[in-house]
Design a protein around this nucleic acid. Structure first.
Length: 365
DNA sequence: TAGTCGTGGCG
DNA sequence: TCGCCAAGACT
């Protein structure tokens, strides 16, 4: 055990990537990075982190922010409840903890958006507490190191991993140790292409000894992906387009969108967008142009997004809000300041990039 | 406990 | 092109 710890800590000292929050281990920055890194790879999170810290350098400035601005900064990073909880957590920390994150994992875990992993990560990395932080990297490393022959998500396996992790934390070095385990998983002990020849632990790895590295961890049952056609419409009035703000819960909570919805079986995208517009806004619309088909995915869905330009069929009435908490007409330029789901953002960027915005929205045409 | 909740990259 | 993935939390 001693040599295992020594080997990994030594490797981390040599191979730790230089990351912004590793310069100071400022608790606010560590917490922010950990929230961003939930289900997100390092390279994607770093840019978002830097923009966040530049705009909100500390807990107090973040707590004073509007949800609209936080969502805009989070746009494209996904899992938007993290942004909502980030803001709620900052406000709670200011209101109940004097603006400073608590050091204790249990107290941390009571805060919005902080679960078992993040509580352990912040307590150890920001506050040097001797606690574990077990994420998917650590599970994979342990599954190989100890040749665990059952899926890591299984309750008994998780219990074993948590127990083992707790026993391994070197006193006073949890900050380095927890990061070292995750860094090893991210750089060396890779899911599909493990680099065992570069691994400081290969000599002590049971799966490596048994030539079972590629069989570990035992895969969970595969998710089935669901292809889906969605139709969305840009209703244009006097150079502005109708947008609505999605409900507080569910997918893309609090983000703006163009009305639309699933293309039902036996229905064309054209029929779907007209039907959805009527259902969501009570407006009767007609299609003036097909703008694009944007392909994107979310969770287990793979979406073909059919996008149309629309005009009012009858007299222009105020849109109802049956599927939104807010609605308005906005210029194409205004859309750049609001947060949209990635698929809608792709469409907006396409329209602006092709300079079709003017063609589409110019009231003179 | 099992489902929900995003996204972009990669082979 | 497309299936599969990659630093969890919440209900």
């Amino acid at each position: 055990m001693a040599s295992l710890r020594e080997a990994l800590l030594c490797w981390f000292a040599e191979n730790a990537r230089p990351l912004p929050w590793r310069e100071s281990y400022d608790p606010y920055q560590v917490w922010l990075s950990e929230i961003m890194l939930q289900q997100t790879q390092m390279e994607r999170a770093v840019g978002y982190f830097q923009r966040f810290v530049a705009r909100f350098p500390d807990m107090a400035s973040l707590a004073a922010a509007s949800e609209e601005e936080v969502l805009k900064l989070w746009e494209g990073l996904g899992y938007y409840s993290r942004a909502k909880n980030l803001l709620a957590c900052a406000r709670r920390v200011v209101a109940a903890h004097g603006g400073a994150l608590p050091h204790d994992p249990k107290t941390l875990q009571a805060l919005p958006g902080i679960g078992p992993y993040t509580a352990g990560a912040v307590a150890s990395i920001a506050f040097a507490r001797d606690v574990t932080a077990v994420d998917a990297n650590v599970e994979r490393v342990f599954a190989r190191l100890f040749d665990l022959d059952m899926p890591v998500r299984e309750a008994r396996t998780r219990a074993f991993i948590l127990e083992t992790a707790a026993a391994l934390v070197p006193r006073g070095k949890a900050r380095e140790w927890n990061q070292a385990l995750m860094e090893l998983g991210a750089l060396v002990c890779l899911p599909k292409r493990p680099r065992c020849s570069e691994c400081p632990l290969s000599g002590q790895c049971e799966a490596y000894r048994l030539d079972l590295v590629f069989e570990r961890p035992v895969p969970a049952k595969a998710v089935d992906y669901i292809p889906m056609d969605v139709a969305s419409g840009l209703l244009v009035r006097e150079g502005r387009v109708f947008i609505q703000k999605r409900p507080e819960t569910g997918v893309w909570a609090g983000l703006w969108e163009f009305p639309g919805g699933t293309v039902e079986s036996g229905e064309t995208p054209e029929q779907a967008v007209v039907r959805e517009f009527r259902e969501e806004t009570d407006l009767d619309v007609a299609i003036t142009a097909k703008l694009a088909v944007v392909r994107h995915g979310y969770t287990r869905y793979r979406v073909a997004l059919h996008c149309f330009a629309l005009r009012d069929l009858n007299d222009a009435a105020e849109p109802a809000l049956h599927a939104a908490q807010e609605g308005r007409f906005a210029t194409l330029a205004e859309l750049s300041g609001l947060a949209f789901p990635a698929g809608h953002r792709k469409l907006i960027d396409q329209l602006v990039g092709q300079n079709r915005g003017g063609l589409l929205l110019d009231p003179m045409r």
